[in-house]
């Protein structure tokens, strides 16, 4: 069985009596250890898909199963537990808490876990080392560069050692050079066995994915594996 399964996912938003179909019947499976890019124009439903996979947004119809857990059969508190244990979020706007240091931001997902403080510190320290920011642990977000903030956000997503990382436009507010560094970091993590689902509309980073889902009007327009893509180019 695949690690992630979407079955016939629909999401309809009702705003001001206007019905907007964000997702219109998506069924897809994602294997463990994959680096999947979700791409498509604005309004194609890619962020909605990520939110639903993240257990943050109830689908109008259909189901999401992660590691055999049907997310929307869980109540909201259990879904919070699921997020804590299974997911690492990396947001476009970094979403670091401004009054907490890099280290404290990284420790956030551990704040409600019953682990000894010293162990929490060790976990945060080791993951900050991993993203190359061991020396910036005591700095506040506003004392860090954009790239460094994104690394802290990635470290925060990793600290719990979650099976699945969800990244929403992590390079969206970074320059090309920094974007490349971040993509290389994610790529290394993926090579180490980390499953990553990443939403982006930056075509330049496509080469890092080993599978790309192209969304259009709430449907999967294309599902391309890297190998196929290479063959297509050679052909």
């Amino acid at each position: 069985m695949s690690f992630v399964q979407f079955s016939n996912l629909h999401k309809v938003y009702n705003s001001d009596a206007v019905e907007v179909k964000a997702l219109d019947g998506i069924s897809v499976e994602i294997e463990e250890g994959a680096f999947v890019g979700v791409m498509g124009p604005s309004g194609s439903g890619k962020s909605t898909m990520l939110s639903i996979l993240g257990g943050l947004c109830h689908p109008t119809e259909g189901a999401v199963v992660v590691d055999g857990i049907d997310l929307y059969q869980l109540n909201s508190e259990k879904r919070a537990d699921f997020r804590r244990e299974y997911l690492g979020f990396v947001f476009q706007a970094f979403n670091l808490i401004p009054y907490l240091t890099a280290e404290e931001n990284v420790m956030l997902p551990l704040a409600v876990k019953k682990i000894h403080s010293r162990q929490k510190k060790e976990m945060a320290h080791s993951v900050l080392q991993r993203v190359g920011l061991g020396h910036r642990a005591g700095h506040l977000p506003n004392q860090l560069s954009g790239g460094e903030q994104e690394r802290v956000a990635i470290a925060r997503a990793l600290v719990n050692e979650p099976p699945l990382i969800l990244a929403d436009e992590p390079t969206g507010s970074l320059d090309t050079g920094t974007s490349r560094e971040i993509m290389q970091l994610l790529s290394v993590l993926n090579k180490e066995g980390q499953t990553i689902v990443m939403v982006t509309h930056n075509d330049e980073v496509r080469s890092y994915f080993d599978r790309t889902l192209l969304l259009r009007d709430g449907l999967i327009a294309k599902d391309v594996c890297k190998r196929e893509e290479l063959y297509a180019r050679v052909g």
Binding site: E77, F91, L108, V112
Partner: peptide
């Protein structure tokens, strides 16, 4: 609001 959204996304329960 946004901060609380981050907490919730990171796995904080409502009670937390």
């Amino acid at each position: 609001t946004r901060e609380i959204g981050i907490f919730r996304a990171l796995g904080f329960r409502r009670s937390h």
